[in-house]
Design a protein around this nucleic acid. Structure first.
Length: 689
RNA sequence: GCCACCGUAGCUCAGUGGUAGAGCACACCCUUGGUAAGGGUGAGGUCGAGGGUUCAAUCCCCUUCGGUGGCUCCA
């Protein structure tokens, strides 16, 4: 006699076992029609799920009562759509083996293997979509059937798909006592797929869908296993929602830093120079320079000392640090001097031998530096230190080079040469907590000043199952605890993730998303007991004995390249005054005002702003439009009237009309204040007074 | 590195087995115009590179370089 409790607290008593669908129908025909699934005691399941005992039931509809899209409904819809796509592809591509087809935050995919070698291409999307439309048009029910583990496995073994057998094995290991199949239609008649569900009631419930892209993947994400084809798609309850989604993607594309970087001439990546090697053009360089100045001011306040170090170092240095052995696959190969090179050539040394002898240290070589820490460590080690001197905080905008995989490189976010706003703090153990606070405050300062609130914090810990970490576990425990405590003090939610530590220590990472939804690590703070040991660093303590310092590695921006890339997207290319590559543009109405315009320009430049004049042979309207497309914060329009009254007409980016006129001196003072305070004060405020 | 797709003027993109077009940008001329495109004229491309098929290749095939979306990796 199940008693069904609904989300509003009311309950319904049934004399016999019933289903979620039946309850929905009893509540009302509207709900019955809208319901896609159900949550029974918090567990998402089919509408057809049998309810034979007391439970809490929530019916899942595409939109909740407040009109919000229901994430569970969308997820069910998409997973069901993945099945429909799989059926369509198996129909069109006989022999296709299915692997795994989950829903995603913005769609779904299905991993498949094509033993025949005939793999669908983007040209096949239309055919697949029309096959899917057919299945949806037939509005066939999703029908679940359960088999015992043994029977189920026997069925799968007969079918012979190692992928599905593996899925079943994993279900078994996860404690499942049965295996379930979902048919689109009638079990045993229509197409079916091993799946734990749940699904929407019928294929017709997919309101709108689209196959979006094709990619390859590895079985279980392991590159040594089968290579699979992954077909991506998305689905919504209604067409307008799909269209809105596609439009949103389109809008996001316009913020893409690669697009804006080209349009606004912020940087250039040249195939003649090399993949992933960024050329900072004047406009982008201005942004980067402003960021560096900004953080440098904060660093001086915190007692950092600036250093400069070369771009290469001896191989031995990086063997000692561990970088060369740990990351040899992702480094530019060592540089060997001419004499050694010719000697090796005479000996007939092969590439294989060369690599071997480099490893063994028989050949001297230099490495393009993959990290700044070894150089900073050698600066620390170059003189004795007293406990009174600590912490020693050495900072440098240090450029490093890494041989990233070619397929991973793109824009500014993943490159082969980049500059870290790096620093290494050599501290006593009792100073760790306080110094970590200082590091985190820098990251907060940056995010706060730039208005970037959409980030997450990850504490990267070692993976207990891996042996890639150096040092003893007691120190690791201390370092991890220090990171955890520091992260807690941030007052922001954070996740602890095993396996995300660096090989020498745990870290706190700040992660943001780009317009396409990809996550990127920006700022990072790392606690390291191990490099000081590897380099035998010391300081003299109050007891007149040698002690081991602890290192903190930190880069609040992370990589200047990546940070600027993300920043371009954050501001959609419309930078605030202090960061804008071109801060003010002066527009003389005509040649008659040229002289006054030049005077205005000179005054703006004199207070240190980046300004230009556009005396082009165009009407003001056209020049305003050009400036607007270049996203220049302020325009100073000057004509004979302004010259006579010694005022400027001000126009700001993002406002439709001109703000009005300001006396020359007030304009200059307002600009200067907004610039110096990095937006704390605004020239625009002058117009509200 | 792997899979798929893409590469035509500075940029965005049409196009075709018979060696190419548009818009914007650029140059020059006219226009001296008060807040998101004034008008005209012109210049600009060995169709990413190399090889092959063909009487003929920008177009078809192979290789290579570069880009995009994923996968894997990321100190």
């Amino acid at each position: 006699m199940p008693k069904i409790t609904l989300p509003d607290g009311s309950s319904r008593q049934y004399d016999a076992p019933t289903t979620a669908a039946q309850v929905a129908a009893d509540i009302g025909p509207g709900l019955a029609k809208a319901a896609l699934g159900a949550k029974v005691d918090g567990q998402l399941c089919d509408l057809s799920t049998k309810l034979d005992r007391d439970c809490a039931l929530a019916l899942i509809t595409p939109k909740s009562r407040d009109g919000q899209v229901d994430a569970d409904a969308l997820s069910m819809l998409r997973h069901s759509c993945a099945h429909i796509m799989a059926e369509a592809i198996q129909t069109l591509f006989p022999g296709t083996m299915l692997v795994y087809g989950p829903s995603l935050e913005s769609g779904f995919y299905y991993d498949m293997a094509f033993p025949s070698g005939r793999i669908p291409s983007t040209d096949d999307f239309a055919a697949i979509e029309s096959e899917m439309a057919k299945i949806i048009g037939e509005n066939r029910p999703f029908t679940r059937s359960d088999l015992s583990l043994d029977d189920g496995l026997a069925k799968l073994n007969k079918e012979g798909s190692k992928f599905k057998i593996d899925n079943a094995q994993r279900a078994k290991e996860a404690g499942s006592s049965t295996l379930s199949w979902y048919a689109t239609g009638t079990s045993g008649v229509n197409w079916e797929d091993l799946c734990r569900g749940p699904h929407v009631p019928s294929t017709g419930r997919i309101g709108a869908f689209k196959i979006t892209s094709l990619a390859s993947s590895y079985w279980k994400g392991d590159e040594t296993l089968d290579r699979l084809t992954r077909v991506y798609g998305t689905a919504f309850a209604t067409k307008p929602e799909l269209e809105a989604h596609l439009k949103q993607l389109d809008e996001a594309k316009k913020r893409d830093h690669r697009m804006l970087g080209k349009q606004l001439r912020l940087f250039h990546i040249d195939e003649m120079v090399g993949q992933g090697l960024v050329l900072w053009t004047p406009r982008g360089a201005a942004i980067r320079q402003e960021l560096q100045t900004f953080i440098s001011e904060a660093l001086r306040i915190q007692g950092y000392q600036q250093v400069f170090t070369p771009h290469i170092g001896k191989l031995d240095l990086y063997k000692t640090s561990g970088h060369f052995p740990f990351y040899r696959e992702s480094q530019y190969p060592p540089i060997i001097d001419q004499d050694q090179m010719s000697k090796l050539a005479e000996e007939g040394c092969t590439c294989g031998e060369l690599a071997n002898r480099l490893d063994k240290g028989e050949i001297e070589g230099y490495l393009l530096k993959p990290m700044n820490c070894p150089h900073h460590i050698r600066i620390y080690a170059s003189e004795p230190h007293s406990y009174r001197d600590l912490p020693v905080r050495l900072c440098e905008f240090g450029t490093v080079y890494r041989w990233e995989q070619s397929g991973e490189i793109g824009g500014l976010t993943r490159v082969r040469g980049f500059t870290q706003d790096d620093a290494h703090l050599f501290v006593r153990e009792d100073q760790i907590a306080e110094e970590l606070q200082g590091c985190l405050s820098l990251v907060k300062l940056i995010f706060g000043t730039l208005g970037m609130n959409d980030y997450r914090v990850r504490v990267g810990l070692r993976d207990p199952k891996s042996d890639k970490y150096v040092g003893d576990s007691a120190n690791w425990d201390k370092a991890e605890e220090a990171c955890r405590n520091a992260a807690r003090s941030l007052g922001v939610p954070f996740s602890e993730e095993a396996g995300e530590a660096a090989f020498y220590g745990p870290k706190i990472d700040f992660i943001v998303r780009d317009v396409i939804g990809r996550s990127w690590q920006l700022g990072t703070v790392q606690v390291d007991y191990n490099l000081p040991i590897r380099f035998d660093l010391s300081y003299i303590g109050a007891d007149n004995k040698e002690h081991r310092p602890v290192m903190i590695h930190r880069a609040p921006f992370g990589s200047m390249e990546r940070f600027v890339g993300v920043l371009i997207e954050h501001f959609a290319g419309a930078f605030p005054l202090w960061l804008a590559p071109e801060q003010v543009r002066v527009l003389p109405i005509s040649e008659k005002s040229e002289e006054y315009a030049q005077e205005v320009l000179a005054a703006i430049r004199k207070i240190g702003l980046r300004a230009t004049i556009d005396s082009g042979n165009e009407r003001v309207q056209a020049r305003i439009r050009d400036a607007s497309e270049a996203k220049i914060p302020y325009l100073a329009v000057v004509g004979p009237r302004d010259a006579q009254q010694r005022v400027v007409s001000v126009r700001a980016f993002g406002t439709d009309a001109n703000l009005g006129e300001l006396p020359f001196d007030q304009f200059i003072a307002g600009l200067s204040a907004e610039y110096r305070t990095r937006g704390g004060e605004s020239l625009k405020a002058s117009f509200h007074a």
